[in-house]
Nucleic acid binder design. Structure first.
Lengths: 220, 220
DNA sequence: TCCATGGAAATAATCGATTATTTGGTCTAG
DNA sequence: CTAGACCAAATAATCGATTATTTCCATGGA
């Protein structure tokens, strides 16, 4: 999930990067908002340099837009962008799932069952950001052994983008349940090594998630 | 190609970002090399803050590896990585080309012909980095109207990655000519709107480029 | 000989202050 | 009235100095 900055102890810049990323994903900022650097300094209680470095990383990652001499702003939420992200997720996660089914071993099957179990246990009382994290873990476990680090990287990036839309979305209980059912079916198809139907289902799954998220776009 | 930081006048950070990116693509640094910040300061004649911001961007973009408290290092060149980049280029550019053929209009056809013409005119006397730039332009023109900004973004990113391998590659004249021929054929198939064969050809084209680049990997 | 330890030198990260650019409002000329 | 120029306040970007961490080498013990 994070860029590989783990070795050595955490630096202020990488801590603030993660904090900002989470807050962006959780919709703590308004879409299109200009981020005042001085205000961020106060909010997160950090110095200027590490903060700016974190913002530069986030802009390069695609969670912020950077304009020379005009600072940083949060990306807008638009239907066109959501459609793009959705279609790319369909293509890339579909491909990755096929590859994962081809290459995944026993260890993968265990990890997948575990991730699915943890996700299934999360109920109504689960804290806001926690379900999203378990959900991300599940989808990551699904495609992890696809064999391509770049594919996984792009998928994570798109997942982060998609989360910005999902978070704001209303909790349609019925749809939520259909999505949960699909998770279970995805596990079954993966273990059965049915690549064709698994790919069909994950594409359908992503499209359905997108329908839910669509409500968070601008005019509503 | 660049991240959208154009408005306002160029900042030192974005200038040094571009300079470093070009130098990384052109192989001015050794693979795996640790980048000494103080040395970079002297080489590029810039202050510490903008330099660090540029490095942070490049790391988030994937052209550098950042390790907490241990600075930045150039990525290694490995066969595994090249194979991954190549396969992803095949998938993503293949998809993008199909979409471009579906959605591209007259303007696209003109741009494509122009880009192809400019690339064809570049001969032996063309400066080192120039051919690569024209080549990148051509490939970009090919897929530009695919309709997905994320797909184009990923393709550019992979193209930059691939360039690190290509630059070092020996100039096998015969292969170079086959690649040139393929460029012409790609244009023909695109104008004929033959999506299936165009996709087949671009996948073959990328694979062939990769064969040439393979010589630049570590043990040789 | 080989590892472990300590400490200085090198270097990465951060801070505080300064400079450069943009923004928003006001005034004047047409 | 409107358009343009100008000024002051806000804020982004950069610099120079300081702090924290790692690296490297020397030394001593098993």
């Amino acid at each position: 999930m994070n860029q590989a900055t783990r070795p050595g102890s955490a630096t202020t810049a990488s801590r603030i990067y993660e904090a900002l990323r989470q807050d962006l994903l959780n919709g703590r900022f308004d879409a299109g908002e200009r981020l005042s650097i001085t205000r961020l300094r106060e909010t997160y209680q950090v110095g200027l340099s590490p903060l700016r470095e974190a913002l530069n990383r986030l802009a390069a990652y695609g969670l912020l837009r950077q304009e020379n001499q005009r600072g940083f702003r949060v990306l807008e939420l638009t239907r066109v962008e959501l459609a793009d992200i959705t279609e790319m997720r369909r293509q890339l996660e579909g491909l990755a799932l096929e590859l994962a089914i081809r290459y995944g071993d026993d260890e993968w099957e265990s990890q997948l069952l575990a991730a699915n179990h943890r996700l299934g246990r999360a109920g109504e009382s689960t804290p806001v950001g926690e379900w999203e994290q378990l959900h991300a873990r599940f989808h990551n476990a699904l495609v992890a052994p696809c064999g391509s680090t770049w594919l996984l990287r792009f998928i994570s990036q798109l997942h982060d983008q998609f989360d910005r839309y999902r978070r704001v979305a209303p909790r349609a209980q019925e749809l939520r349940q259909r999505l949960d059912t699909q998770h279970q079916e995805l596990v079954d198809l993966a273990l059965a090594r049915d690549a064709r139907r698994a790919r069909e289902l994950i594409e359908e799954h992503i499209t359905l998630s997108s329908e839910v998220a669509k409500h968070s776009c601008h005019p509503a």
